[in-house]
Simulated assay, not measured.
Amino acid sequence: MNKKNRKIVSLSIITLLSTLLGLLFLSPFYIIIVNAFKTKQELFKNTLSLPITYTLDNFKEAFNELDFGNSLFHSLFITITSVVLIIIFSSMAAWMLERTKSKISNILLMMFLASMIIPFQAVMLPLIRFMGKLNLLNVGGIIFMYIGFGASMSIFLYHGFLKSIPKELDEAAMIDGCNKFQIFWYIIFPLLKPISVTVAILNTVWIWNDYLLPSLVINKPTTLTIPLKTFFFFGEYTKQWNLALSGLILDIIPVIVFYFFAQKQIIKSVTAGSIK
């Protein structure tokens, strides 16, 4: 076998393995979508087969059971508010830590990085007890906690990106009469757009899908998020898989819409990261 034939065989094997791996990753989505259109009896009869008769009754019932409009509002409010505040505060902190070369700034940066390895479960009970004493077991409290948990990784990402922005820009703006806030907001922050998109994506996916923290903090039935509402399909004695799968599709739609509108910025951020 000559070199050209070996190359063709190798490429064919890689293509086959990549296709199989892609199908493996897509299989959960296939199972969710296919079974969302089945009746409960048909779902348990054959999980992998296509529906004999497609029905939208599952989506209608799941929409009502989820109180989808109210749950969607609270999920969007918590996610958007938390992500926006994480982006603003983390970029500010990272900028000051990167521009201020001192032992204190290095210690603070190391503390932020060290907090990334502490699992949430290790501080879960003391944190909830402390927040309960402050009467912050509500929507405002969970946003405050999301900012705290999301800041470490975001500061780490911003700090690395800021190293590629020359300090001379800050000095030139200062000579022109800008104060610290103006330098950051009008000069530095617009340049952070590529990494801000990355930070927004990572935190949006995490906060939108989070179940554990909201289950500990949000107690009012009127302020439950979509993951909390979806859990009610799984009772102690029965599991409504047909409604749960339909609800999951409804949950995914806002994320798909977010990706659709942000895809240009996502591509730009990936391209900018590869260049740098």
Rank of each mutant, 00 (worst) to 15 (best):
L56R: 03
S90K: 09
N46S: 14
F77V: 07
Y30G: 08
L48K: 05
F44Y: 14
M116V: 10
M92I: 13
I88M: 13
I117V: 14
Y54F: 15
M96R: 04
M96G: 05
F29K: 09
I107V: 13
L97D: 01
L21N: 07
F59A: 01
L97P: 02
L20Y: 11
V34L: 14
F44W: 08
T39K: 13
L23A: 13
F44L: 15
S49L: 10
N58M: 05
F29S: 11
L56M: 13
M92E: 02
G22Y: 04
A62E: 00
I104H: 01
F63M: 05
N46A: 11
F25M: 15
I80Y: 04
K45R: 14
I52L: 11
I87T: 09
G22S: 15
L23I: 10
S90L: 08
S49T: 09
S102L: 08
T47E: 09
M96W: 00
M110H: 04
L66S: 07
E42H: 09
L24I: 11
F44T: 12
I78Y: 03
P28F: 08
N106Y: 03
K38T: 09
N106W: 00
A114S: 15
V83D: 05
L24Y: 12
L48G: 12
N46W: 01
F77G: 06
T47P: 01
E65W: 01
E65I: 05
T100S: 07
S75I: 00
T39I: 06
S105H: 03
G22N: 12
I118T: 13
M92D: 02
D57S: 12
K103S: 14
S71Q: 04
I78L: 09
L48Y: 10
K103E: 08
L76D: 00
L20C: 15
N70K: 12
I118P: 11
N70F: 00
S102A: 09
T47R: 09
L97A: 05
L66H: 06
I78H: 04
I31H: 06
K103T: 11
E61V: 03
E42W: 01
S102M: 06
T39Q: 10
T55H: 12
L109E: 00
L76F: 06
S105V: 03
F112N: 11
